[in-house]
């Protein structure tokens, strides 16, 4: 599984990454987590507000920092 965290490096983006890493660890999923900071790369996903969570190329959420339970549901 490939997970991308989209955002320029703001506090909410960092928070989403932390929560996502925790969710992956708790679920025991083998996932590669990468950060995408370049605005053009973010826009290539059609994302207009950040942070955003992309799982295997599909945007699952944008503009919010979800709970860890919500992240688990999105990446399962």
């Amino acid at each position: 599984m490939k997970i991308e965290i989209l955002g320029p490096g703001c506090p909410k983006c960092i928070k989403l990454e932390e929560i996502t890493r925790q969710a992956v660890q708790e679920l025991g999923i083998d996932a590669e987590i990468t950060k995408v900071k370049d605005v053009k790369d973010i826009m290539n996903h059609g994302v207009m507000i950040t942070p955003a969570l992309v799982v295997d190329g599909v945007v699952k959420l944008a503009g919010k920092v979800p709970s860890i339970d919500d992240v688990k549901k999105l990446i399962k």
């Binding site: 996903h45 059609g46 994302v47 207009m48 507000i49 955003a52 699952k60 944008a62 503009g63």
Partner: peptide
């Protein structure tokens, strides 16, 4: 400004952005 066509085409990034705004 964002793309109405992206919403109409059900592109996940545009739809998620609209929902997150």
């Amino acid at each position: 400004k964002t793309c109405l066509a992206g919403v109409g085409a059900d592109i996940a990034g545009f739809v998620s952005s609209a929902r997150g705004a």
